[in-house]
Computed example of a mutant assay.
Amino acid sequence: MMQPRLVIFDVDGTLSDSQGHILAAMADAFAAVGQPLPPRAVVLSIVGLSLEVAIARLAPDLSPAEHTAMIAGYRAGFRSRREAGGVAATPLYPGIREVVEGLAAQPHTVLGIATGKSMRGLEALLDGHGLRRHFVTMQVADHHPSKPHPSMLMTAMADTGIGPERSVMIGDTSFDMDMARAAGMAGIAVGWGYHPARELGSATMHVATAAELPGAVDAVLDGMTAA
């Protein structure tokens, strides 16, 4: 009998392509304080951080009151677009549904999430795609310090009773990989997200397509050859 293993996914840039909503909502945030939106690459570089940390990083010269106004503007803009556009506005990446459903069907595999999203936003996304039932533990920005602090992963392991040697974090940003390392677990970096490969050097393994993920998980956690 195979020992239980914990596979934890990031969301934005890993499971779903949310960049359209993120960029538009961040434009709302900057408009709320009369400031122009930074370049696209700069905005996407902070995806994965908790919103408060992301705003402070993007607008370091603004005041705490202005940051608060920006956070409110972002949340309002993101929520209105989600409600107007529905699940089609934040599509899953190709092959991701099959990967999640396939891993969830394995008796020895437990799935989790660690994301900078709020629980409200995460549940709306997962429910829209019919995936919430597959995730046993869901860790969000509401309850933890921002990535790369390992709090989300430590709590996911505590929830499931599975240790770091049998756990892996799958994500697209340096924040995900650094969080995994801080928690003592392996990290698999995906090649379709928001951080370039050169920033993902701390990953245990890299994959270019979703189809490679199951083999990578086997290789990292069970010493099996990746397909």
Rank of each mutant, 00 (worst) to 15 (best):
H21M: 08
F135C: 03
M152P: 11
M169A: 00
G163L: 06
M70V: 04
V110M: 09
H206S: 06
G102F: 12
V87L: 10
L49E: 11
D178Y: 04
V100D: 00
M2C: 05
P196M: 06
Q139A: 03
A186C: 00
S118F: 05
Q139W: 14
R166C: 00
V110K: 13
G128N: 04
G223D: 02
T90I: 12
M157Y: 14
A25H: 10
V47F: 05
D61V: 05
G112F: 10
T155H: 15
T137Q: 11
S146W: 06
A189N: 00
E52N: 06
P64T: 11
P4K: 08
G128D: 00
L49A: 12
G95P: 01
P196A: 02
A210L: 10
L58H: 01
A227L: 07
G163E: 15
T209K: 09
P91T: 01
L58R: 07
L37M: 08
A182L: 07
T173P: 06
S151V: 00
Y93R: 09
G85Y: 14
A29V: 13
A69N: 02
A32L: 02
G85C: 14
M138T: 11
A156L: 10
H134F: 15
A54D: 11
M26E: 13
E83N: 13
D142K: 02
G193Y: 07
P94Y: 02
R40G: 00
D159M: 02
R198C: 12
A56W: 07
Q106E: 15
M152I: 02
P38H: 05
G77N: 14
R57I: 00
A186R: 13
A124G: 03
M224P: 01
A183T: 05
E98N: 10
T137W: 09
L6Q: 03
A219E: 13
A216H: 07
A32T: 10
A216T: 07
L44I: 07
G116C: 05
A84D: 11
T209A: 14
R181A: 15
L122T: 11
Y93D: 08
L213F: 02
F30D: 01
A114P: 12
P148T: 06
L15P: 03
A24G: 02
P60L: 10
V110W: 04
M119C: 00
F9Q: 05
I22Y: 10
P214L: 08
L131E: 12
A114H: 14
M26V: 05
L92C: 04
G171S: 09
A88E: 04
V47M: 07
P214K: 11
A89W: 10
A104V: 08
M70W: 12
A208I: 00
V220F: 05
R75E: 08
G161E: 08
E165C: 00
V140D: 14
R82I: 03
R181S: 06
D178L: 14
S50Y: 12
G48M: 11
G223M: 06
F9S: 04
G116I: 13
G187I: 11
H206Y: 01
G121W: 13
H149F: 07
A210P: 09
A105V: 09
T14C: 04
A211Q: 14
Q19I: 13
G128R: 01
P4L: 10
D178A: 15
G73P: 13
L111M: 04
S202G: 08
R132F: 10
G77Y: 09
E83R: 06
S174L: 03
P150C: 09
I22W: 01
T209F: 03
M179C: 12
G86W: 03
P64S: 02
